[in-house]
Measured scan of single mutants.
Amino acid sequence: TGEEYIAVGDSTAQQVGDLTFKKGEILLVIEKKPDGWWIAKDAKGNEGLVPRTYLEPYS
């Protein structure tokens, strides 16, 4: 379980453990880390770190 967020920009994984996503994708945020990198899952079930500045709450 988690909260749904929509990507407001494209982000390409810079290192192992990062999640690549495109603008408009809905991501499920699993954990919000205080350093600004959140753990999220995409629609295909891929999981990784995403920069919170690229996400907005999805409603």
Rank of each mutant, 00 (worst) to 15 (best):
T1H: 13
L19F: 06
Q15N: 14
G9H: 15
G2I: 10
G48H: 03
L27M: 05
R52Y: 14
K23I: 08
Q15G: 14
V8W: 05
E56L: 12
G36P: 03
G45E: 03
S11I: 14
Q14H: 12
K32R: 07
K32A: 04
I6Y: 06
L19V: 03
Q14W: 13
K33S: 11
Q14I: 13
N46V: 08
K33V: 06
P51H: 15
D18C: 15
G36D: 05
E3M: 11
S11H: 15
E56Q: 11
A43Y: 09
P57Y: 06
I30Q: 04
A43C: 10
P51A: 11
G45F: 03
K32M: 07
T12C: 14
K41P: 00
V50Y: 02
T12A: 11
V50I: 07
D18N: 14
Y54S: 13
V29C: 02
E31M: 13
E25L: 02
K33L: 11
L27K: 00
T53A: 14
I26G: 01
E4C: 15
L27P: 00
L19D: 00
S11F: 15
Q14C: 14
E31T: 10
W37F: 12
E3V: 09
V8E: 02
T20H: 09
E47N: 05
K32D: 01
Q14T: 13
V50P: 02
L49Q: 09
R52C: 15
V8Y: 04
P51T: 06
V29N: 00
G48V: 04
G48Q: 02
Y58K: 08
L19Q: 00
I26F: 05
V8I: 14
I6H: 03
Q15R: 15
L19K: 01
D42N: 12
T1P: 12
G17A: 06
T53K: 13
G2V: 10
E47H: 09
E25N: 06
F21R: 00
K22P: 01
W38D: 00
V29I: 11
A43I: 09
V50C: 04
G24T: 02
F21K: 00
K41R: 15
L19Y: 02
A40C: 15
D10H: 06
D18T: 15
V50N: 01
T12E: 12
D18Q: 15
D10W: 05
A43F: 09
A43N: 10
A40W: 02
P34F: 09
D10K: 04
P34M: 10
E4N: 09
D10V: 04
A13S: 14
V50S: 01
T12G: 09
T20Q: 11
E56M: 13
F21E: 00
S59G: 11
P34W: 08
K23D: 03
A43M: 11
A7D: 00
V8G: 04
Y58T: 07
I26S: 03
D35P: 02
G36N: 05
L49N: 08
G9P: 01
L19S: 01
E4M: 15
Y5Q: 01
P51L: 14
T53R: 12
D18K: 15
W37H: 08
K23N: 05
T1I: 13
D35N: 12
K41A: 06
T12D: 13
E56F: 08
E47Q: 13
Y54C: 14
W37E: 05
A7R: 01
G24N: 05
K32S: 03
A13Y: 09
E47F: 14
Q15Y: 10
V29K: 00
G9E: 15
K23M: 08
V29Q: 00
A13L: 08
I26E: 01
S11Y: 15
A40V: 14
E4I: 14
V50Q: 00
V50R: 00
V16N: 10
K41W: 06
A43V: 09
I6K: 06
F21M: 03
R52D: 10
K33E: 03
G48I: 03
E3W: 14
V16I: 12
R52S: 15
D10I: 03
L27Y: 03
T53Q: 14
G2A: 11
G36E: 04
T1Q: 12
A43L: 10
L55H: 01
E4D: 06
V16W: 10
V16E: 12
S59L: 12
A13N: 10
E3A: 08
E25A: 10
V8T: 11
W38K: 00
Y54G: 06
P34Q: 10
E4A: 14
E25S: 08
I6T: 04
K32W: 04
V50H: 02
L19H: 02
L28R: 09
E47M: 14
P34H: 10
P51W: 15
S59W: 11
A40F: 03
I26D: 00
L55P: 01
R52P: 14
A7Q: 01
V8P: 03
T12Q: 12
G2L: 11
V29Y: 01
K41T: 07
G45D: 04
V29W: 01
V29H: 00
I30G: 02
F21T: 01
G36I: 03
D10C: 08
Q14R: 13
E4Q: 14
E56A: 12
D18I: 15
D42E: 01
A7E: 01
G24I: 02
K41I: 14
D10R: 03
G17P: 05
E31V: 12
K32P: 03
I26L: 07
W38N: 00
K32L: 03
E56V: 13
S59H: 12
E25R: 02
E56P: 00
P51D: 15
R52L: 09
R52G: 14
K41E: 03
D42W: 02
T1E: 13
A7I: 03
A43H: 09
E25M: 09
A43K: 11
T53L: 10
T20Y: 08
Y5I: 00
K44V: 08
A40L: 05
K23E: 05
G2T: 08
A13F: 10
N46C: 07
N46S: 06
L28D: 02
P51E: 13
L28V: 10
L27T: 00
G24H: 04
E31W: 11
A13I: 08
S59C: 13
E25D: 15
W38V: 04
G48R: 02
P51K: 13
G45Y: 02
W38L: 04
K22T: 07
G36F: 04
I30W: 03
W37L: 10
K22V: 08
T53W: 15
E56K: 12
K23V: 07
G9W: 15
D18Y: 15
T20A: 11
T1N: 12
E25P: 01
R52Q: 13
G24R: 02
L49K: 13
V16M: 11
Y5R: 01
D18H: 15
A43S: 14
S59M: 12
D35G: 14
E3D: 09
G24Q: 02
K33D: 06
S11T: 07
P57K: 11
Y58M: 10
Y58V: 10
P57Q: 07
K41F: 07
E47V: 15
Q14G: 11
G2W: 14
T20L: 08
K23H: 05
Y54P: 02
I30L: 12
K22D: 03
Y5M: 04
K41S: 05
S11N: 12
Y54T: 07
E56W: 08
I6N: 02
W37Y: 11
A13K: 08
A43G: 10
P51G: 07
V8D: 02
I30N: 02
I26M: 06
Q14P: 08
A40M: 14
L19N: 01
Y58F: 11
T20E: 09
G9D: 12
G48E: 01
I30C: 05
I26Q: 03
T1V: 13
A43P: 07
T12Y: 13
F21Q: 00
I6G: 01
L27H: 00
Q14V: 12
L55G: 00
T12F: 13
A7N: 01
P57N: 05
K22L: 08
T53V: 11
L27S: 00
I39E: 02
E25T: 07
D18M: 15
S11W: 15
P57M: 06
K41N: 03
Y58P: 05
G45V: 01
E31I: 10
L19M: 05
K33R: 14
K32G: 02
I6V: 09
P51C: 15
A7V: 06
G48M: 03
I30R: 04
V8S: 06
W37N: 09
Q15V: 11
K23C: 09
L27G: 00
G9I: 15
E25W: 10
